[in-house]
């Protein structure tokens, strides 16, 4: 049997200092254990961080919500503050995985989950992410599930998270603790595009640990909707998903937030489309225009071209629902 060291971290500082480059933190283990069993990841050391005091959800004085790294996906989805002020996040969490997995999976673990690209998960396939320089079997292979946004010659693997798509739209900040102390990274800058180095997926340095994710203050009054499109009704990764949040200004869109999942190599914030929506009437025409803008740079491969029209549909429908709910909220407050 391939052996590995196992230790339980009892403090954040020590966890961050104790690790080596081939170590891995384990919380829920829902990605890691799978990939170890498939021989895709071979950590020499597992540092179990479940005992760390990172399970709080608390409002900060500036109106932001701080979520501890170890808050489970289930607890976060059902947290009263999240349900009331960030329903988009709750919806996205509940669209992901299954109840059993959400009970184990943590907030930071969700951010760190690995791609579902089948070539990544098959050690006998060429994959620059798993084995830098080995090539990419997905580019010219069965790439139905792959990215149309943010891909490179080296990698077109999709970031699989739903939660992260909502966070990208809501805006958030990650708190990282490492050997050199604590630092903060905006959510949108945490995940990296694959470029020539698809094995580097994020901004985390060796030994650094995500300790919290702080959500931007809620946009109010607003409506939001997370729409996940997939083959079957549940328990499947997105073919295209959209997190949309709309605050109305009379009959027009005041602020819109838009992010995509299932189609991009990282949680995909659509800043240009958001800008184009501001001040526009909340109509299908506006939503369709935003969808065109959001997918303008999409590059399909042989089997995933359908994701472009599908993502457009996800955007239009999610915006429509978000705007409808925003209208309801506006009326209630009037």
């Amino acid at each position: 049997m391939r052996t590995f060291a196992y230790s339980r971290a009892d403090s954040v500082e020590r966890a961050a200092h104790a690790t080596t480059p081939t170590a891995a933190f384990v919380a829920g283990g829902t990605t890691l254990l799978d990939l170890v069993k498939l021989d895709v990841m071979q950590p020499s050391e597992l540092v179990d961080i479940n005992a760390l005091p990172l399970k709080q959800v608390e409002w900060l004085d500036d109106g932001r919500l701080k979520v501890g790294a170890l808050v489970t996906n289930t607890d976060l989805a059902h947290h009263p503050a999240v349900k009331q002020h960030y329903p988009l996040l709750s919806e996205a969490l509940l669209a992901g995985a299954s109840t059993q997995l959400r009970n184990m999976a943590t907030t930071a673990g969700n951010v760190m989950q690995r791609t579902r690209c089948p070539y990544f998960r098959d050690p006998s396939a060429a994959c620059n992410k798993r084995h830098p320089g080995s090539g990419c079997d997905a580019r010219d292979g069965l790439n139905r599930m792959h990215a149309v946004l943010g891909g490179s010659e080296a990698c077109i693997a999709v970031h699989p998270s739903d939660m992260c798509v909502a966070m990208a739209a809501l805006g958030a900040t990650l708190t990282l603790e490492g050997p050199d102390g604590e630092r903060e990274v905006p959510f949108g800058e945490f995940h990296r595009l694959p470029g020539d180095t698809p094995h580097i997926e994020h901004d985390l340095a060796d030994g650094e640990l995500i300790t919290a994710i702080t959500l931007d203050a809620p946009l109010a009054p607003a409506g939001s909707h997370y729409l996940k499109l997939r083959d079957r009704a549940s328990y499947e990764f997105a073919l295209a998903s959209c997190a949309a949040q709309v605050a109305l200004d009379g009959d027009s869109i005041g602020t819109a937030r838009l992010a995509l999942g299932g189609v991009a190599t990282k949680p995909w914030r659509c800043a240009e489309a958001e800008a184009a929506l501001a001040g526009q009437p909340a109509t299908l025409e506006s939503f369709e225009r935003a969808a065109e803008i959001a997918l303008a740079d999409a590059e399909p491969r042989e089997h995933n071209a359908f994701k472009i029209p599908l993502a457009r549909q996800a955007i239009v429908r999610a915006l429509r629902e978000a705007a409808r709910l925003a209208g309801t909220t506006q009326e209630e407050q009037a």
Binding site: R116, G141, L142, Y235, F237
Partner: peptide
């Protein structure tokens, strides 16, 4: 799904080979 290049099975697991779940 067999890879058209080399006939390898690509979706040999229950996450990627889609069957109905309760919700379906």
């Amino acid at each position: 799904d067999y890879d058209p290049r080399d006939a390898r099975l690509v979706n040999g697991n229950v996450a990627d080979y889609i069957v109905p779940v309760h919700a379906d």
